[in-house]
Write a protein that binds this DNA or RNA. Structure first.
Lengths: 218, 218
DNA sequence: GCCAGCGGCTAATGATGATTAGCCATCACA
DNA sequence: TGTGATGGCTAATCATCATTAGCCGCTGGC
């Protein structure tokens, strides 16, 4: 309904001049993503995906190796991008509070903007075959650990105050992940507004004393 | 590995004397639950479920009408129980903070104790056929609304302070739901401890001034 | 005007899997 | 001892799909 989605940085080793070949593949990926998100990987047939891009199921094999490959590409690139966004976000900050705020904002913004990917990524891990499943799970573990360590650093400095950094990190991650399930562009909040507010909520959560929340009511 | 699970209150209209009939059905439901949670509804075959209770796939039809019925029973009873637990929890409190604390604790305790059900309930909605799907979604909507109203009440009384009751309620619900994905009995925290700590986190989230968190460090 | 190969199509192929049919042992009980 | 229900089993049935085979038109370079 509303998602131009600039997936995929083009990867043309030879340097093709037209954009048709990658376009087709990108369209298929996008259709697969939407269908996987809407009906689930197993419930989506190659014929469904084909119909979404104007061809028959078997024709898809001229562009992709298998249905599984489509899922793998979606899940792996999603995870990579999430981690990348998080690292970029926290890079320029040395204050722990600021780091957490930025990490949360990136996390939420990601789950708002790439809701479909995130949704599929969270639901279909079990349908990803090895070794990709483990690869994704490992990356995800790293990502979680990053949040936890950030909170632990804050605890060590006395800036944060929670009983368990693990629970706090899980909570923050899960509330962000939840965003993917309901956020739609054009709703009450933009992705950025959402990110900011979730940043507030997260900071409150890990802070014993009142955080500096702007008093403005809008 | 470790879940006796007293599902189902027995419903014997006639008043059978043995427990075998209900037992069998309960065992099947439990096996289905575990398999649905582990591999997903669509990836689970009737043969799988049968094997888990020591019979062949087709024999299951002597006890249940269909695979879909199993899913429906799981999802509907889960939702009912969750709502029930929530209502019982908040019943005896008139302080808004206390109500929220109890609601969150019930929510988290539920997702810790009935993690499999909750997990399946959240992931397999799309595989539930109508009209059950809408029924479950409606119930879930009511449940969410209950939390939101609770927060709005707190806002109105000036006890809580958040920009958006909706976002706060989503956050709280989602962090609790996330518990279902990782909590295991026998880990670092018991379900009750977890519930208590999440209650703290949630209260901090909706409160501008520092909540009364016990100073003890352990 | 030819030809390779790209990208579509239809028709297999081969699994897999829910559900049904029909058979049979057991058992409570008259 | 007979009998009907109960609950299991194997062997269909009938769909649904992913994937493969093999066909063919178009197009771009020659």
């Amino acid at each position: 309904m509303a998602a131009p989605d600039p997936y995929e940085r083009p990867h043309r080793p030879g340097g093709a001049d037209a954009d048709t070949p990658d376009d087709r593949r990108g369209a298929i990926r996008l259709a697969a993503l939407r269908l996987f998100a809407g009906q689930g990987y197993r419930a989506t047939t190659m014929a469904d995906i084909g119909a979404a891009v104007g061809m028959r199921g078997p024709s898809l094999y001229k562009h992709v190796a298998s249905k599984q490959e489509l899922l793998a590409e979606i899940m792996i690139s999603t995870m990579e991008r999430l981690i990348e966004a998080s690292q970029e976000a926290t890079a320029g900050a040395d204050d722990v509070r600021e780091q957490l705020r930025r990490a949360v904002e990136a996390h939420v913004r990601y789950h708002a903007r790439y809701g479909l990917e995130a949704f599929v990524g969270n639901r279909e891990i079990g349908n990803l075959e090895q070794p990709n499943r483990d690869r994704v799970l490992r990356r995800r573990g790293e990502y979680e650990r990053g949040f936890r360590r950030l909170i632990e650093r804050g605890l060590a400095k006395g800036v944060f105050d929670v009983r368990s950094a693990r629970l706090a990190s899980y909570s923050i991650l899960d509330m962000g992940i939840g965003v993917a399930a309901w956020f739609r562009e054009g709703g009450e909040f933009s992705a950025d507004q959402l990110a900011y507010q979730y940043g507030d909520l997260a900071l409150r959560m890990v802070t014993a004393t009142a955080p500096a929340s702007r008093p403005s009511s809008g």
